[in-house]
Nucleic acid binder design. Structure first.
Lengths: 154, 154
DNA sequence: GTATCGATGCAAATTTCTTGCGCACCATTT
DNA sequence: AAATGGTGCGCAAGAAATTTGCATCGATAC
């Protein structure tokens, strides 16, 4: 089930991580391979789960979400059922793009996108502060996102 | 240049943010629209920059990068040229997926992916600690990524 | 030396993309 | 009320890309 990734696969992955709309013919030009071989490799990488998904990335500013905030959350307890309830509830907030369980001085780190700081205040009050088990919230605003890529090094 | 996004556009964007490989015909079934109208709307959304890119998302575990670390960085000064040099240098480290200039008690927040904690130690020593202007680094490990989406609320 | 397995290139069939065209609808003007 | 201009729609045809069967090649195992 786990696929071995040779150098050709790696080059394919590097390309489609930047632009998933390259055609098999375009990929094949850069790989010294036939289009059908490219296509079959991509099929295999997708079937084996190396490629999780292919998605459109939006311009956050164009859709009115230019503000990124990172929120450190401490829970009142680390009991399993509290963590589960927290995770289930936070997954339902569409403003939260990422949720990580952390080591260290707080329990969860969230990445939140808001329309502006006032909008974040609303999200904070209406959603984040009401999450089950929350003891403490600390928010840090991004003044500017220098870069933000989804391309993993391969 | 800025596109008005009506409800049909929004529904299109919600769909292609989850799966950019839906065909115009498949999209049209869910939107009560013809395939060609879907296609033209997507063209417009892309031309106007609302859709920034379409990319393949990889399984971090499958490509050997299961470990996510957030690194808070304080610089020795906030002089413009130091910030510029820092940003240019950090953009060249492929292990760093995100870099945000922050308000608050530190200057930059980085999201880094590593093979394991030992690999992160190497990245830390070889790349992060050598970035220009760095005064202090504080790293926080993610024990588990509960979720991680690129889909902005639209 | 031979068999086997996996991957390749080629080519045909299918599907999808892409765009020109005419039409309908709506708002504004005359 | 009629005319006008603009926008977006569906249809349909041509172009392009995907998808798959097949024969072949090369490496590895026996």
């Amino acid at each position: 089930m786990d696929a071995l990734i040779d150098e050709t696969d790696a080059r394919l992955l590097r390309l489609v991580q930047r632009d998933a709309r390259l055609t098999a013919a375009q990929l094949s030009e850069r790989l010294n391979l036939s289009p059908s071989a490219c296509h079959r490799r991509l099929q295999r990488l997708e079937a084996s789960g190396v490629i999780r998904n292919t998605v459109a990335l939006l311009n956050a500013r164009a859709v009115g979400r230019p503000t990124t905030v990172f929120v450190e959350i401490s829970l009142s307890t680390q009991a399993d059922d509290v963590l589960d309830a927290f995770e289930a509830a936070v997954a339902r907030i569409p403003d939260v793009l990422e949720c990580h369980l952390m080591t260290g001085s707080y329990d969860y780190l969230l990445k939140v996108v808001a329309r502006d700081s006032e909008d974040f205040a609303t999200i904070h009050r209406r959603h984040l502060a009401r999450l089950p088990g929350v003891a403490k919230l600390q928010s840090s605003f991004a003044l500017k996102t220098v870069f933000n890529t989804t391309a993993l090094p391969v």
